[in-house]
């Protein structure tokens, strides 16, 4: 438990000295230490190749065990806990066509709940609720490849919400979206009462959604703190290949 703004908050993710080297020898993560509290929204920023996506994949146990410790809701990320962890930690990938791999929207949204072992009745209920939550009720029988990008993004979100996760990880959630669809998505995310980790270069989005940011570069955490404070630090941002968001300039 940690005290924040007078409230006692529970640590939901704990990463200690995480290192990861890809099979081709690329060192992607170097000694990452990170604590995330329940209900927090965290922005993960950094230049291309900083290790953001690699870190996100570790939180769901996709990349296997690296060196170091990762704990999700008190469970160590290791083979025996993966089923439970994957139920609790949901990842929405950048490219919705990678997330929507089943022939119909229903099958895609039901994929997670079925693998979790829910009963048929519960699966159908969860699919219905998740689609309603993202404003896509009635799309069950549609084929994913016939949807617009905005619709695909919403369905992608529904595919993980149907698993009732406690932690929602979003990798570049607004990439390629037009302003209206982007605004809808931001409102949708703001209304979700979950612990959120948002990785990406849309710093205005991170400013709107996240209370805290973590700046990664070359596999290391180079800065962390309150969102506005970190994002308005011009020299820090420029040194790490980023820019101060437009809304924070000239202040």
């Amino acid at each position: 438990m940690i005290k924040l703004n007078g409230y006692e908050m529970k640590k939901i993710i704990r990463v200690k000295n995480l290192e990861y080297i890809y099979p081709d020898g690329t060192s992607a993560l170097k000694g990452i230490d990170l604590d995330i509290l329940k209900g927090e929204s965290i922005g993960l920023i950094g230049p291309n190749g900083a290790g953001k996506s690699t870190l996100l994949l570790h939180l769901n146990g996709i990349l296997g065990e690296g060196c170091g410790l990762i704990e999700i809701l008190g469970m160590k990320v290791e083979e025996k806990n993966l089923i439970k962890i994957r139920q609790k930690v949901a990842i929405v990938f950048q490219e919705p066509d990678n997330q929507l791999f089943m022939p119909t929207v229903f099958d895609d949204v039901a994929f997670g709940p079925i693998n979790t072992g829910y009963s048929e009745e519960k699966v159908r209920k969860k699919v219905k609720e998740a689609l309603k939550e993202v404003g896509m009720a009635g799309y069950e029988k549609r084929c994913s490849h016939h949807l617009s990008l905005g619709e695909k993004k919403r369905i992608s979100l529904a595919t993980v919400l149907s698993m009732q996760p406690e932690i929602l990880i979003l990798d570049e959630p607004t990439s390629n979206l037009d302003p209206r669809v982007r605004r809808h998505l931001i409102e949708l995310l703001n209304n979700l009462n979950l612990t959120k980790i948002v990785a990406g270069h849309d710093l205005e989005l991170i400013l709107e959604i996240c209370q805290r940011v973590i700046l990664l570069d070359e596999g290391k955490i180079v800065a962390k703190g309150e969102t506005r404070e970190v994002l308005s630090n011009k020299s820090l941002m420029e040194y790490h290949g980023l820019e101060v968001p437009l809304s924070l300039r000239h202040r």
């Binding site: 994949l57 769901n60 996709i62 089923i83 994957r86 139920q87 930690v89 949901a90 990842i91 990938f93 490219e95 066509d97 990678n98 997330q99 791999f101 089943m102 099958d107 039901a110 994929f111 997670g112 079925i114 693998n115 979790t116 048929e120 699966v123 159908r124 595919t159 993980v160 698993m163």
Partner: peptide
């Protein structure tokens, strides 16, 4: 490369080698 990303998306939602669907 896409197949690897799709695999990641599947594994993250509990895929264990068999695609299960409702009857």
């Amino acid at each position: 490369e896409r197949t690897e990303r799709i695999r990641d998306a599947m594994v993250s939602r509990g895929y264990n080698g068999r695609v299960k669907t409702l009857d």
